[in-house]
């Protein structure tokens, strides 16, 4: 048996040896190549992306932060929501919700497409790209889209005068973490689906929508009866929103709670990411 037949490194100059050297770039940069691909694909629905990124903040900030706020502030004053205007209260929550919305788009149907409807993941994997790199590349691309979306959203918040605190810009990073932390879990779940028989629509209706309503988004969590408050405690959106409020208008909460928000989101991100990589590796290796 030669060295080649024991699974050891092939002799220098052989085809195998050349293959090993020429694959170093993909081993290192493969995730970025996948991200590049995703950006190119984004152009197919560039209009939707742009309209969402610019239209959403205007519509939501105006409807909730100006329209509803007039009613709330006039009837309850600033005591209703912890000493700030309703606009200042609701804006960080809307920012985090915007991140969740982008994550919900990007981590669901594009994953179904890649595995099933237009199985480009298999094509990537037939090239030297590894399953984990596919997931990394998607996360990178979605990170950029969420970051830009939240950046634009934040600019509108400033324009609406919704950010009393100088540390407000940090809320953008919190929102990105919120979107990704929730999104990678959703991606991992989507990756387990071999058939879409309405599961994703159910997730939108019975997970994402209730999460948006009961995460202290439009009213403080404490307003809810205790038996409903758990939705907030496990909701990434509640953790994100509360932390964003700390930065945006100085919501007072104990430091340990702020740290907990970050930890909770970081753990979701780590677990979801690793889970998605595992499922993808299993699904592509048939």
């Amino acid at each position: 048996m030669t060295a080649e037949h024991t699974g050891a490194a092939p002799p220098p100059g052989s085809v195998g040896d050349r293959a090993i050297r020429s694959t170093r770039r993909t081993r290192r940069w493969g995730s970025w190549y996948v991200a590049e691909h995703r950006f190119l694909s984004l152009r197919a629905y560039a209009q939707t992306v742009t309209v969402t990124a610019i239209g959403n903040p205007i519509i939501y900030l105006y409807a909730m932060g100006v329209g509803l706020a007039t009613l709330v502030d006039a009837n309850l004053g600033t005591d209703a929501v912890g000493g700030v205007s309703y606009l200042a209260f609701v804006a960080p929550a809307l920012l985090c919700s915007a991140a969740i919305a982008v994550a919900s788009d990007e981590f669901t149907y594009p994953i179904m497409i890649g595995f099933k409807w237009n199985p480009v993941f298999f094509a990537m994997n037939a090239a030297p790209i590894q399953p984990g790199q596919i997931i990394n590349g998607i996360v990178i691309a979605v990170f950029v889209r969420i970051f830009v979306t939240c950046g634009i959203f934040y600019a509108f918040m400033l324009l609406f005068g919704a950010v009393p605190s100088a540390t407000g810009f940090l809320a953008v990073f919190v929102a990105v973490l919120t979107g990704l932390g929730f999104g990678v879990l959703l991606m991992a779940y989507t990756a387990t689906l071999t058939e879409d028989t309405g599961q994703l629509a159910m997730v939108m209706r019975f997970v994402i929508l209730p999460m948006t309503l009961f995460s202290g988004t439009f009213f403080p969590l404490a307003v809810l009866p205790v038996w409903l408050q758990w939705i907030g405690w496990i909701s990434p959106l509640w953790h994100g929103t509360e932390l964003a409020r700390v930065f945006a208008y100085g919501l007072s909460e104990p430091l340990w709670l702020s740290v907990l928000h970050v930890l909770y989101l970081a753990v979701l991100l780590a677990v979801g990411w690793a889970w998605a990589r595992r499922i993808t590796a299993r699904r592509l290796n048939k």
């Binding site: 699974g7 085809v15 195998g16 090993i20 694959t23």
Partner: peptide, 20 residues
């Protein structure tokens, strides 16, 4: 190409063309 796919998957695939 003299390589074990279990160990050198990406390396082998870098030298293949695949028409599924």
């Amino acid at each position: 190409l003299g390589l074990d796919p279990n160990r050198y998957g990406p390396e082998i695939r870098s030298r293949l063309g695949v028409v599924p």
